[in-house]
Every structure is written in structure tokens, then in C-alpha cells.
Design a binder for these strands. Structure first.
Length: 762
DNA sequence: TCCTCATAACTTTTT
DNA sequence: GTTATGAGGA
């Protein structure tokens, strides 16, 4: 028993307890930076090395690929090659493999295709047509998300139809029914199916259920607060035999409820396993005292939460740097310049710095600033690799070869490159296939055979179309044959060659678009490189694993942890990561919190948690930025400071920003975003009393002035140039406006009725 | 059948 | 500022 006890070294008492509590259900509430991953990995190492559990009997499920990869790496270091036999993966990849092996029992054959959100939408549209429901009245996207939500709570089309609550759901139920049939006909599963059908399989098939229950003696679930009903049910099914289930989570970091994650799973866990041990990890090893204090203060504004008492022994550190920029361009420049300064003066590496934002679109300005200043950056996520057109094109070829029933891929591939088979021909063939109840591709094969033997065709098609179909079928048949014989990379090369894709992808459309074709080809090469990983597998398997990887792993990029590049990342994706220096940009009402999440208190609390996640990523330095103006779907508009900035105590900020506080409090309590200075509605604003940091007095609205201005308006001053209105306050019957001028002129306070100001219209 | 051009409609967050 | 759709012409 003494062997391997070093596994417990360096762990605090709570962590040690979590590692050693291996029998029976265990709930670990892990605050940010509390060594969660460390505990999970050491717990597995403890099982393997101290308790002599076969690695084969242990499964750890995570939420993201990144988390799975990190866990694998750490386990490799802890237990060496023993880690190879561990099951470590995301829920989705676990299920994908489960279905590949045993899906036949629920009507899914091993070569099934995984449909992504785009494919799903294509199929939903088809289903709506079959259900005769007008996509103008019912947006396919909305239908898709309704069906997706239904699946995440394990409602199949029949159960959903019984549960419908309103007219929209009644319509959705009809679509759902057809959609389910179409998936079956395509031998395909969507993301939600991976979970739902796996649960179905385990529930309905005793043999399969027992196989997995007997195999896994220990189960661990990471990021438990982000699991949905289906995922939780799956975990319970797997752990039913021995109840050795350990779930780790932090309700304060639950940021995926929009994807049907259900924090109530934590409560359910305590209910379902009434003998569960609960352990809280509250010591933070990651952040400075001030950063942690800011985070705690922010999150305490949320109503519904389990109270934790986070603390740290780390240094207090520096206050949170607040910067208010003119617009997103200036915001980005500030960030990049500041990083350059940190690298120069504080001996930091560029790789130590991360910039986080709410929506992907915000990365643009940052990228431009990086390019402009020669700052290397790594963009995480963004337009996902497999979503790029050419990548998806090639993928669809491969999917079709693997699963000829996949008509979504077939329909796409048939026009890449254009080969004279257009929408009309496709539709005619599909209609005929439908009538004969034969798969589309089989139909095409038949047409080709009939044509070759000179017989008359049962469909009226031009001879040009029939020739094109014959050629196409010949090519695909040949490639399907190769798919079962050639290593996957060679197969890809054959596809590229036979389908004449190289010249198609490389073609430079447009005149000035130099290099677009090269870029496309580069992406294809990258896909080919990824395929090399699977080249050694027996022919059809290599293709299968490649396709699975491409469907389930969002970013193919190598995730090089090079110290040379800064990281640009969304707040969602940043969860689970940490950086010495973190910049959070776009702290504005409507962005963070996002305008689509401001309807309800629950949504707002989730936005706050998202902000909390961002703050708690920072180890040493934290910057929070906002811009007074932000480009927003084409046009530029004024912004308001995020309410989250107000939640952070001034004494933790640098500089403390009373002005910001004024804007937030004054305007928000007034209720409108369009506060016109000239015609203020009767209301009160808060104003800081001179020279006393925390005293506020209430004053009444100013008298109307001659110039109508909004906060955020662009103005021109005859001397100071252009600037933006960032604040205002009443001043002896007049209005004093605060204007932040560009080009280093700085902030000026001006009397509205005297200052030579004019408003610049957009 | 395929391509070009115009316009509309929109963008959270991800497996 | 983008990307998805549609009309019209080659």
C-alpha cells in the first residue's frame, strides 16, 4: 500500500480526501483554480497504482476535447503506458464509439454518418417540406433547436408529440417525425442522437447494458454542471452496477444552459445517490488575491447559488486594470500595445497572454491589430476548420464513400465540381427514388446500368444528364472500392484526383482575389495531414476514425502551446484554461451581457457566470476593457458600460473609474440606452461628490441644452478635434459633458452651451 | 445548367 | 461587414 503513495503528496487535505474517496458516489464542488484536473487525474492514478484497478475498468468523461486531451496527457505522465487502456473522452466521442460497436440494436449500422448542425438543417428543411410546413412561418433554425432540446431531455418524436405544449411545438412534432425517418434513411445520427440513442440502446438492450456496466467499475464525470439530462442519464446507466461514480463541477461556472445543460443535475445527483459524499475544493492556487476578490464580488451578485468560500494564499497582486477605449479598433490596439509592453518590460512571454471576448466576431479587430503590429496570435475556434467549404466538400466525398446512404453528402458532392447534374435532374431522380422506395444512390446506379445497356429510362432526363450520371456513378463506385482497400491518405489522393478537385479548389475566382485558391488547397493539405494519423489502420477503419474525428473535433489545429503567440479565444472556450495575463474585451451592455441574454434573470446570471469564468482564468494580471463605440452589424453605435464592471469594487480597480460608474448608474437607472442630453426625461442621476471616493449625491436632471447629444456620440471640437461623448452632468443650469478626444488629446470636460462642439452624423 | 449580381437578414456561446 | 437566397443572363 505504500507504493504509489507519493500520488497524495503535495495535495491539500480536501484534495487528498477527494482522491482517496473511491468507493461509492462522490460529488466534488471545485472552485476555479482549485486543482480540479489535478484531483481527477491523481484519483485515477491512485485507483490504478494503489488500488490496483485495471485501467480498462476506468472511464473519465469530459465535456470538451481540450479537457479530454489534457487529462490524457497528465495521466500519461502519472501512470505511463498504463494510461493507454483508460477510457478518456468526451461524452460525444464515447457515444459515437458505443453506437459504432453496438448501434445495430437500435437500427444504426457501424458505418453511420454523424451529421453536424449544417447537415441537420438541410435535413430539417427536407422534413419540413415532407410535413408541408412553410419555412417562412416556422424558421428551420427554430425548429432545429426545438428538436435538439427535445432530444437532450430524451424525448423521441413520439414522446415529443405527446408532450407538445403549443401550436409551434405541434408543428415541430410533425417535422420531428419526418426528420427521424430521414436520419434513419440516411443511416445518420446528429449530435444529440449520439447521446439519446446511446441511452436508448443501454436502456433497451440488457446484453449491451450489462456489457458496459460490468466493464466499468469506476466512472468520473468532469464539468458536471454542464451536463444535460441525456448525459446524466447515460452516466447513471453506466454506473448502475457499482455506484462508483464521481462527478466534478462548479455551479458558478455553468455556462451552457443554452445547450440544455441543467444545473439541477447536481441536485439530482444528491437525490439519486443519497449516500454520496460531497467535498468542496475552495483553495485557489491560480490567481492573485485581488483577481480572486474581484471574481468573488462579481459572482456574489447572482441570486441562486451554492455558497462557497474561496480563498487563496497567493499574493494580493495588482489591481484589475480598467481601460475604456474609443472604439473596437482602439481597444484592440491598446491590448496589443500593452502585451508588447509586458513582453518588453515585464519579461513576459506572448504565450502568457490571452484575449477573451463574448462573440467570435470580436476577434476581427484584434486580428487586424495583431497583423498591423506584427504580433503573432493563435485564434482558437472561429470559423471552424471543418466548416470551411472546401474541407466540408472533401469530407462529404469521404462520408459518401463510407456510407452511400448519406444523401446529404451525395447532394453536395454531385455539384463539386459542377458536372452537369443540376437541381432539376437531382430532384427528378429523388422523386423517382422516393416512389420506388429505393435509396438515391442505388437509383443512380440503376439509371447508369440501364443507360449502358441501351434501355429506355423510367425518368425523362436529357442525354447529357444521363451521361453525366453514368460518369459520376462510375467514379464513385470505383472510389468506394478503393475505400475498402487503400489506406485513408491514398484514398484521399484518389478522390482528389478522380473528382478533379485539385484544379477546382485551386481555381482563383474573381480577379483581384489572389491566393484564395492556394488557401483552399492549403486547407485540403491540412486535412490530408490529419488523415495521416489514421493511415496505419486497416482500410475501412482508418476512414471511419478519421470521419469520427472530423465530426467531433472542432479545431484540427495542433494547439501548439508556443510561447510565441498570444491567444484569442471566446469566453466559452476559455473555460478550463489559465493564463498569466488575461484581457477581457467588450464589457458593454448588449455584448457582455449579450443582448440576447438580457430578457430573463436566469440568462443574465449565466452571462455573469461567463464573465466570472473569464476573470478566474487570470493568474497574475487582469485587464477589463470596453469601447465607447462599437461596430455592430455594419454600423457603428454608442455603447454603455457593462453592469458587470459595476459589480467589481473600485478599490480592486486601476484606475478607479467613477465616471464609468456614473454612466452605468445614471443611465441604467433611467432605463434607456438613448439618453438625449437635450431632452432628458425627468429622473435622477448619481453624481460623485468632489474628492470623496465613495460619497454620492442625488441630483435632478439638467435643464434642456441647445445641442442634442447622446452618450457615445461622435463630436468635433474646433480645437481638440474629434471625440466621443462619454459622460455628462448638470452644472449650474448648464450641462458639463465629458468628451474623450482622439489622437492623444485626452479627456476634456466642457460646458455644453459654450463649447464649440458640433455633432458628427454617421 | 451555371454563374453573376443584388438584396436581405442576420451573429451568442459548442459537441 | 458578412453570408444565404434569388432573379436573370450566358
Amino acid at each position: 500500500m505504500t507504493l504509489g503513495m507519493e500520488i497524495l503528496e503535495g495535495l491539500n487535505p480536501a484534495q487528498q480526501q477527494a482522491v482517496e474517496t473511491v468507493d461509492g458516489p462522490l460529488l466534488i464542488i471545485a472552485g476555479p483554480g482549485s486543482g480540479k484536473t489535478r484531483v481527477i487525474t491523481h484519483r485515477i492514478a491512485y485507483l490504478v497504482r494503489v488500488r490496483d484497478v485495471l485501467p480498462y475498468r476506468i472511464a473519465a468523461v469530459t465535456f470538451t476535447n481540450k479537457a479530454a486531451r489534457e487529462m490524457k496527457d497528465r495521466l500519461q505522465r502519472l501512470v505511463g503506458t498504463l494510461s493507454d487502456a483508460l477510457t478518456v473522452g468526451t461524452f460525444h466521442s464515447f457515444c459515437a464509439q458505443l453506437l459504432r460497436r453496438d448501434g445495430a440494436h437500435v437500427g444504426i449500422s457501424p458505418n453511420y454518418t454523424i451529421f453536424d448542425a449544417d447537415d441537420q438543417l438541410t435535413l430539417i428543411k427536407q422534413a419540413m417540406e415532407l410535413a408541408e410546413i412553410d419555412p417562412k412561418h416556422f424558421p428551420p433554425q427554430a425548429v432545429r433547436s426545438t428538436i435538439s432540446k427535445a432530444k437532450s431531455v430524451l424525448l423521441d418524436s413520439h414522446a415529443f408529440a405527446r408532450n407538445q405544449q403549443n401550436y409551434f411545438e405541434e408543428r415541430c412534432a410533425r417535422v420531428y417525425h419526418h426528420y427521424e425517418e430521414l436520419l434513419a434513411r440516411n443511416n445518420a445520427a446528429d449530435f444529440d442522437d449520439l447521446l439519446m440513442r446511446s441511452v436508448q440502446l443501454l436502456q433497451e438492450n440488457q446484453e449491451v447494458r450489462e456489457k458496459y456496466q460490468e466493464r466499468y467499475h469506476y466512472l468520473m464525470v468532469d464539468e458536471f454542471q454542464d451536463t444535460n439530462v441525456a448525459q446524466y442519464r447515460l452516466a447513471r446507466l453506466l454506473a448502475e452496477e457499482r455506484h462508483n461514480i464521481c462527478v466534478v463541477g462548479d455551479p458558478d461556472q455553468s455556462i451552457y444552459s443554452w445547450r440544455s445543460a441543467d444545473i439541477r443535475n447536481i441536485l439530482s445527483f444528491q437525490h439519486d445517490y443519497s449516500d454520496a459524499t460531497t467535498i468542496s475544493l475552495e483553495q485557489n492556487y491560480r490567481s492573485t488575491g485581488k483577481i480572486l476578490a474581484a471574481a468573488k464580488q462579481l459572482i456574489s451578485a447572482n441570486g441562486i447559488r451554492l455558497n462557497k468560500d474561496l480563498f487563496t494564499d497567493n499574493d494580493q497582486g495588482k489591481p484589475v486594470t480598467i481601460h475604456e477605449a474609443y472604439d473596437e479598433g482602439e481597444e484592440a490596439s491598446y491590448v496589443i500595445d500593452e502585451i508588447a509592453r509586458l513582453v518588453r518590460e515585464e519579461k513576459l512571454q506572448r504565450g502568457d497572454c490571452a484575449v477573451m471576448y463574448r462573440v467570435n466576431a470580436q476577434s476581427r479587430a484584434l486580428e487586424e491589430a495583431c497583423l498591423h503590429r506584427g504580433m503573432k496570435y493563435r485564434l482558437v475556434g472561429g470559423v471552424r476548420f471543418y466548416q470551411r467549404r472546401e474541407v466540408k466538400d472533401l469530407m462529404c466525398y469521404l462520408r459518401l464513400l463510407h456510407n452511400p446512404l448519406d444523401e446529404v453528402s451525395l447532394a453536395r458532392v454531385i455539384g463539386v465540381p459542377p458536372r452537369g447534374i443540376g437541381a432539376k435532374t437531382l430532384r427528378d431522380m429523388a422523386d423517382w427514388a422516393q416512389r420506388e422506395n429505393i435509396p438515391l444512390y442505388t437509383t443512380m446506379q440503376r439509371l447508369a446500368t440501364l443507360h449502358a445497356s441501351g434501355e429506355t429510362l423510367p425518368v425523362s432526363l436529357t442525354s447529357r444528364a444521363v451521361n453525366a450520371i453514368t460518369d459520376f456513378v462510375e467514379m464513385i463506385d470505383r472510389l468506394v472500392d478503393f475505400a475498402s482497400k487503400l489506406p485513408v491518405v491514398d484514398l484521399i489522393d484518389r478522390v482528389l484526383e478522380d473528382a478533379k478537385l485539385e484544379q477546382y479548389f485551386k481555381r482563383d475566382e474573381g480577379d483581384l482575389e489572389g491566393g484564395r485558391g492556394e488557401e483552399r488547397w492549403e486547407n485540403i493539405r491540412e486535412l490530408r495531414t490529419t488523415a495521416q494519423e489514421f493511415n496505419a489502420e486497416e482500410p475501412p477503419n482508418g476512414l471511419a476514425t478519421l470521419l469520427e474525428r472530423l465530426s467531433l473535433v472542432a479545431d484540427v489545429d495542433g494547439y501548439e502551446e508556443s510561447g510565441e503567440s498570444i491567444t484569442l479565444i471566446t469566453l466559452h472556450q476559455a473555460k478550463g484554461l489559465e493564463f498569466p495575463v488575461v484581457f477581457i474585451v467588450g464589457l458593454e451592455e448588449g455584448l457582455l451581457p449579450h443582448s440576447r441574454s438580457m430578457e430573463s434573470e436566469e440568462e443574465l446570471e449565466e452571462e455573469r457566470r461567463l464573465c466570472y469564468v473569464g476573470i478566474t482564468r487570470a493568474q497574475k494580471l487582469l485587464y477589463m476593457l470596453r469601447a465607447f463605440r462599437r461596430g455592430f452589424m455594419g454600423r457603428n453605435g454608442p455603447t454603455l458600460a457593462s453592469r458587470f464592471l459595476r459589480d467589481i469594487p473600485q478599490e480592486l480597480m486601476s484606475p478607479a473609474h467613477p465616471r464609468d460608474k456614473e454612466i452605468a448608474q445614471g443611465v441604467l437607472s433611467g432605463g434607456g440606452t438613448q439618453d438625449t442630453l437635450a431632452t432628458p426625461a425627468p429622473r435622477t442621476i448619481s453624481r460623485r461628490i468632489k474628492d470623496s471616493a465613495d460619497a454620492w449625491e442625488t441630483v435632478s436632471s439638467p435643464a434642456p441644452a441647445r445641442l442634442a447629444l447622446n452618450l457615445g456620440d461622435l463630436v468635433r471640437h474646433t480645437v481638440f478635434g474629434e471625440g466621443v461623448v462619454t459622460g455628462w452632468e448638470p452644472d449650474a443650469g448648464d450641462v458639463q459633458v465629458t468628451v474623450e478626444f482622439r489622437d492623444g488629446v485626452g479627456v476634456k470636460r466642457l460646458l455644453l452651451s459654450f463649447a464649440p462642439l458640433e455633432k458628427i452624423e454617421e
